[in-house]
Design a binder for these strands. Structure first.
Lengths: 223, 223
DNA sequence: AATAAAATTTAGATTCGTCTAAAAATTTAA
DNA sequence: TTAAATTTTTAGACGAATCTAAATTTTATT
């Protein structure tokens, strides 16, 4: 019961959690393999090992889902990941699009006592720099009802919560135009022919956003 | 030339550096094995692999010593280790004897950009909480001419620089009596029969230290 | 519904870091 | 200086995490 999980195992579990959207759907071998950048055969192998350890429910050919035990592991890693992201961005001044990779390494070098102290040192932040909520030490996470920017209507005022795609080019683009979590957006116009959006950012600059970009921005409606 | 070293390899290199006392002597297979807590056969194996990679000069049966390349690797890891120790102790409030293990993990999850920013964030500290100097980003380390407390004479005033033994019980004892780096000690008396020392700590409490403990405290003479 | 295409699993191989047991070399002691 | 004790190395094995290639199962298409 109380053996240590390897960083590799923890990574698989974290990815399964993310891909299952908080454990609401089964994760397919191929999707998992793509996310972790390993071959499908390897994912199959690991899935059956995680299944032996009761961390996932896995049915051959139909994918996997985390058990309660697995979900706790996932949320604990995600907690550490996001706390480090806050540290790197707020205390060390790394930009929003640089922190992910580093946090990926640090999270596995972090025991619970360390993450708890770090949280306190950071002033108990509620979200990471991408706007995603940080699970508390019991593994509870605040559920946000977000929608994609592409799903808003004209004249809506919204606030960016998180970004879906981790593509560096996209993150750079967003960073450049201040399209970061917390940013306020006014949707001025929606073009019917290509579904692009004209938006005003933080009550200042007006921008044209492609449908593609809008699909990747998760937002909440404001007011 | 530019492949990544594994955390394991980095650990071996760091230990070789430490055991060779800054590369002044050959490190024997058995000492290395004891320090890393692996079997001698494993150490032999790794030594020949590190030799293939030109990180150590290794001669069968006579031990190993770091090459210049290996020494750079060692100092870079030690730099990261000690910066994290400062962070954990100064910013997160961990005690002096708790930080080593955690820093051991974090050092391998740290790229150069991160250690540089961390250093700046910490206000460019010169030493870690144990009093050991932190190598700069070029891998240069301040050489201190320290001696063991057991080598001082009566009435000397000295300052603790570092502790040799990493034994937790010893660290706790030292911590309890404020025998930490930076502490000022006045050697009041040296008992000839058991070579124990009577010392005054920070101009306050008077203590009796066994020869064993005195052997483990590295100090510099003051004034 | 049969077959072609795609996804998944199985089988077998490889590398890293470790072990134990046995062989070889060095050091110590009689 | 020879024999005994100790240290080191070699040989062979193993588990974790990965791969490729082949076999199997599921899904899609005609």
């Amino acid at each position: 019961m109380y053996y240590q999980l390897s960083p590799t195992e923890q990574n698989y579990i974290k990815q399964i959690y993310t891909l299952s959207d908080g454990n609401h759907q089964n994760v397919l071998t191929s999707d998992l393999a793509a996310a972790i950048k390993i071959k499908a055969a390897t994912a199959t192998d690991m899935l059956s090992r995680l299944s032996d350890k009761k961390l996932v429910d896995y049915e051959k050919y139909y994918g996997a889902r985390l058990t309660d035990k697995g979900k706790q592991v996932a949320l604990n890693i995600i907690r550490k990941h996001r706390l480090w992201e806050v540290f790197l961005s707020v205390k060390l001044g790394f930009s929003w699009d640089e922190v992910h990779e580093m946090a990926e390494e640090l999270e596995h070098a972090t025991n619970d006592e360390l993450s708890n102290r770090l949280e306190q040192f950071l002033g108990n932040p509620k979200t990471d720099p991408h706007g995603d909520p940080i699970p508390n030490r019991k593994g509870e996470i605040e559920k946000q009802k977000t929608i994609r920017l592409s799903e808003t209507g004209q004249d809506d005022t919204v606030e960016i919560r998180s970004v879906e795609d981790q593509n560096p080019a996209l993150l750079k683009f967003l960073s450049k135009h201040k399209l970061t979590p917390g940013a306020r957006l006014l949707v001025k116009e929606i073009n019917q022919y290509d579904r692009s959006l004209e938006i005003k950012v933080n009550n200042k600059k007006v921008l044209q956003l492609s449908r593609d970009v809008a699909e990747n921005l998760w937002i909440i409606r404001v007011k």
